[in-house]
Design a protein around this nucleic acid. Structure first.
Length: 280
DNA sequence: CGTTTTTGACCGGCGC
DNA sequence: GCGCCGGTCAAAAACG
């Protein structure tokens, strides 16, 4: 599986137009090259071989055009998906339930997203002077945006660190009832007044997945964006951490793209034609 | 020596 | 009211 979408990734990354298609499809290039070598060996080329090679070249060019067209469509879809993903991950007003429909565990406690939620400054209990119902509604209205991020991590790595480019200060750790792995609590340490909190815990189902739950919005820019290409040690590390997360997103998108590709009849037909052409 | 992490205690919400 | 549980506090320890 892994190698399959790695190849796809490389092809997408090196999308070429017909004029330099041989670079994009080295196997085809190699085959033509081999033919040239074989004819060069005979020094004087047979006119029939030359005609055959020309016909083959035309056919390969046609196939390349088809593949280019297909890749262009797929790249457009990829870009569209990428933009959607960016919107979901950067827009803090996105619905947390929609982004991560994790069912709350059966139990007497309230659901994870609202459990132990501290009251924001503008949502004091003074507003809750009427019935409990309206009080709860006010609390729900004041709920900061919550969203989850699933990051693959080594099960042997016991540190609950999710690399997202921000600087976090750990202020607590707790073992919860529904998960044997401890849950770590973080606050944003880049800006003292930043209200964002983060909870990180290994997935109960898959210990290799870290689930980071973010609450609130950053009231400052990302540290790595502020410093740009500054070669400061800490910020450099933050930049690296950010790229690691985007790499995760990139991989999942590429995986999604690979699935789309294999379901695309035009693409599979073009690939089949190209492969059969090489085998003949 | 300043900052960060650890960890037990404490607080408040919720169900019974 | 009581007990359970998640979240937070804060002192001590660890770290650079």
């Amino acid at each position: 599986m892994g190698s399959a979408w790695l190849d796809l990734d490389l092809n997408v990354g090196s999308l070429r137009f017909p004029d330099d298609a041989p670079e994009a499809f080295p196997m085809e290039s190699k085959r033509v090259e081999d033919s040239r070598i074989s004819t060069r060996g005979g020094e004087r080329s047979d006119p029939q071989v030359v005609v055959g090679l020309e016909a083959e070249l035309i056919r390969v060019t046609e196939e390349n055009k088809k593949l280019d067209e297909t890749l262009r469509i797929i790249t457009a879809e990829y870009t569209s998906l990428w933009n959607q993903m960016n919107d979901l991950t950067t827009t803090t007003t996105s619905s947390p339930e929609g982004a991560s429909p994790s069912p709350s565990p059966a139990g007497k406690r309230k659901s994870e997203s609202s459990a132990g939620h501290t009251e924001p400054a503008n949502c004091s209990n003074a507003e809750c002077t009427s019935a409990d119902e309206s009080c709860k509604r006010v609390r729900q209205d004041c709920k900061p945006p919550v969203w989850k991020l699933h990051v693959r991590a080594s099960p042997s790595d016991s540190s609950l660190v999710v690399k997202d480019g921000y600087q976090w200060r750990k202020y607590g750790q707790k073992v919860t009832r529904d998960n044997p792995s401890p849950r770590a609590y973080f606050r944003c340490s880049f800006a003292p007044a930043c209200p964002v909190k983060k909870k990180v815990q290994r997935s109960a189902e898959d210990q290799s997945i870290l689930v980071a739950t973010y609450e609130g919005e950053h009231n400052h820019t990302q540290p790595s964006q502020v410093v740009g290409d500054r070669s400061d040690m800490d910020f450099g590390r933050s930049s690296y951490l950010k790229s690691s997360v985007t790499e995760e997103l990139h991989h999942s998108l590429v995986e999604q793209m690979a699935r789309l590709l294999t379901k695309n009849p035009a693409f599979t037909a073009a690939v089949a034609t190209a492969i059969s052409g090489m085998m003949l």
